[in-house]
Amino acid sequence: MSPDALLVAEYLGRALYGGAILLIAIGIYAMVARYNLMRVLLGLALVESGVNLFLVAIGFRPEAAAPIIVGGVTDVPMVDPLPQALVLTAIVIGVGVLALAAALLIRVKETYGTLDTREVAKFLAAEPADAAPAAGTAVAGTPARETVNAGSAS
């Protein structure tokens, strides 16, 4: 490994790890600084990107090729392929979770008419006493709060 490559690796390393930390920090800041659920989800996406950047950066090695064999040549040094595979998995998982979050967000907005985290928290913390006296009288399961059209259709 040449000294140049080492120097490049050092600067690249700082940039990548620093970038990952920055993304995570911006993401968490976005999640806590404002009281909007949409921003919370965007922040979450940033945090996930930061984590993925960190993971993929772990596999870096100086002067190594992408882990694909071209023309049957197998003896070139390659970067670690494992973190790349992990990141692919992690990205797909993140997509699934965010899509579900978006679906929930739509229902939250529809149900409470707001995306303000404080309003939602207030609603959740409300004592069931506010809504119903003593035990439910009729419907099993959810007498305390009004039931909106339940997702029973398939």
């Binding site: 659920l37 979050a101 929930l104 967000l105 229902r107 939250v108 149900t111 409470y112 939602v120 928290a121 609603f123 959740l124 399961g141 959810t142 709060r145 009004e146 039931t147 909106v148 059209n149 339940a150 997702g151 029973s152």
Partner: peptide, 12 residues
């Protein structure tokens, strides 16, 4: 459950 609080609780 379709309970109003369900969506907010699940999202948090």
């Amino acid at each position: 459950s379709g309970d109003k609080a369900g969506f907010g609780a699940a999202l948090r």
